[in-house]
Structure formats: structure tokens, C-alpha cells
């Protein structure tokens, strides 16, 4: 093998490895992020749907349990996928909890949950006036939208 061939082989290997590694590392990172985001979104959707079904069919205790579980897991999922799971939809479980507590006669707990829902909505719509009626409408729209999704 001539000296030139050795140099060509060495340079080609180095070039291929460097370019391949550079493009591969970023695509690997992107794939991992996409898979994590998809998993988080899917889990959030499943939990949200379950809370909605329980809200409409189950007793207060079980409906509350479903919402509290959703809130806890949403908090963890948000740390994994902060871009995909915006806090915007987080007002929904609080609004649901407010209605559950209200139906169960726990006025102070209902008020606290409603205030929290208001606070989250205000973060995203600072100029908008947030009322209980609007929150309820938002919740209903959200439940209707969930009803359209086949998973």
C-alpha cells in the first residue's frame, strides 16, 4: 500500500467518524427528547381523561383522588418535559378539584382550588378577568375536546 493510499484511508476514516459523530449525537439527543415528550404528553392525556371520566361518574372521594393523582404526576412530568407540558393546562385539575370540593360541601377547599386555578390562568392571560363561570366554561371545553380524541 502506497504512502498516499494510507493517508487517504486515514483522512477518510477520520472525516467519516467526525462528521458521523457530530450529526449522530444531536439526532440521538433529539430522539430522546422527542420520545420523552411523547411519553409525558401521552401520560398526561391518559390521566386527564381518567380524571374527567371519574369526575362525571364516580363519588367525590374517588373523583378527588383521581384529580390529586393527576396533579402530582403532572408536576413530575413538567420537570421532565417543561416545553411540551405548559402550565396553561394545569388550571384544569384545579378547576375540577374546586367543583368536586364544592359538590362535597368543602367550601374553603373549593375556594382554595379555585384561587389556584385563577392564579394559573392569570399567569397566561394577565389582562383577562377570571371568573368562576369562565373557569367552568374552560373546563367544559377541555372535557369536550378530550371527548374527540381517540387513543
Amino acid at each position: 500500500m502506497s504512502q498516499l493510499t494510507k493517508i487517504v484511508a486515514l483522512v477518510s476514516c477520520a472525516l467519516g467518524l467526525i462528521v458521523g459523530a457530530a450529526s449522530g449525537a444531536s439526532s440521538g439527543r433529539e430522539s430522546a427528547a422527542a420520545i420523552i415528550d411523547a411519553g409525558c404528553l401521552s401520560a398526561q392525556n391518559e390521566l386527564s381523561v381518567f380524571s374527567a371520566v371519574q369526575f362525571h361518574y364516580a363519588d367525590s372521594d374517588h373523583a378527588r383522588q383521581a384529580v390529586l393523582s393527576e396533579m402530582r404526576i403532572d408536576g413530575i412530568l413538567q420537570r421532565l418535559s417543561p416545553k411540551m407540558l405548559s402550565a396553561r393546562s394545569l388550571y384544569i385539575p384545579y378547576a375540577r378539584l374546586a367543583l368536586i370540593e364544592d359538590a362535597a360541601g368543602n367550601t374553603s377547599a373549593s375556594q382554595a382550588a379555585f384561587e389556584k386555578a385563577k392564579e394559573i390562568v392569570r399567569e397566561h392571560h394577565p389582562k383577562e378577568e377570571v371568573t368562576l363561570v369562565k373557569i367552568k366554561q374552560g373546563l367544559q371545553r377541555y372535557d369536550d375536546a378530550l371527548g374527540m380524541i381517540r387513543y
Binding site: S12, C13, A14, L15, G16, L17, I18, V19, G20, A21, A22, S23, G24, A25, S26, S27, G28, R29, S31, A32
Partner: peptide
């Protein structure tokens, strides 16, 4: 080498 490097780096990047 591009294929080998790309595969190895994407696995490493993923992990």
C-alpha cells in the same frame, strides 16, 4: 465510518 460514527454517537446521545 460516517455510518458507524453516526450510529454510535446517536446511541450515546440518546442515553
Amino acid at each position: 465510518c460516517w455510518y458507524v460514527g453516526n450510529f454510535a454517537a446517536s446511541m450515546a446521545g440518546y442515553v
